[in-house]
Amino acid sequence: MQLPVLQGPPGYEQLPPLPPAHPDVDVRRRRARAVPPSVRSTARTVAEALFSPDGSPPDAARLEFIESDFGDFYARSNGTARLVLRLSLFALMWVAPWFVFRPLPLSSLSLPQRARALERLEASPLGPAALAVKAMLCILWFEHPTTQAETNTAASCLRSRA
């Protein structure tokens, strides 16, 4: 897309904008930290239950994508965010099953059992842990063009730019 020439506020239109960044410092190309396998697998376990449309798992390719993208999100986040996500994922994987009296990892439960366990955890004082993971998964899921087509939510502006 051709972007317009950047213009400053009145009186400063002739001022050049800040220059482009050096390609080596592009935030998307920066070195990413290693991601523990449990982070990706737990994210996938929760996503399978969360986005199950009819009791069966969602499309495998979508799950691959969200597992990979969640991993990238984790890898590029700083220490506080990683800590919050790790603790939240731990709660969902290991604590949630206790809410349905199944002291097993969440991944070993059937999808309906997982959904029930996660719903009960969500309504408990551990609700913020569920929201942290759910919010991240939902942002990534709803950004995907397939979901945008399914839900009629493709990005659009009120005034279309010529």
């Binding site: 239950a49 969500e122 919010a135 709803f142």
Partner: peptide, 12 residues
């Protein structure tokens, strides 16, 4: 995605 995340529940 954030609006959807604040809806309660999991699954169907």
């Amino acid at each position: 995605g954030v609006m959807a995340a604040t809806l309660p529940g999991f699954g169907p």
